[in-house]
Amino acid sequence: MASTPKILIVDDDPDLRQAMRLRLRANHYDTVNASDGYSAIAQAYKEHPDLIILDLGLPAGDGFVVLERLQRDDKLSTIPVIVLTASDPESTEQSVFDAGASAFFQKPADNTELLEVIRATLFRDIESNSLPS
């Protein structure tokens, strides 16, 4: 991982992307953007982010399609994904985990909690990669 972790923000709402970018940059993360499922995959290939924040309701391949494509690719399947969606957790949380996401947040998410999970997810990854297994 580079000294500044890079986070890919995937959301079709430009205002929410901007808000997330401001919030993450203020917390010393690099950010890149994608506004639909197709460009999310393209950006993941090109930018190799350390973490992806993924909305579910997206044009050109929804969040589940993105998760599936990421899982199928050896290079991308190791990138942790945090799902951030307006959808109801009762109906989607389980399937999101089953599809390989590492955390689920409903919009609007509590900023402190979200940042803590982002930090822990990046941190956990360093630790478990360095463990002999």
Binding site: L16, L22, R23, A26, A86, S87, Q106, K107, P108
Partner: peptide
């Protein structure tokens, strides 16, 4: 009702996010 409450969440999140961005002095 489930559709309406879902759609209300996006603009609501936007208000919430930018209000906290301003309050936290990020701008």
């Amino acid at each position: 009702l489930s559709h309406v409450s879902h759609e209300l969440r996006t603009p609501l999140t936007c208000i919430h996010q930018f209000a906290t961005i301003l309050l936290d002095g990020l701008a």
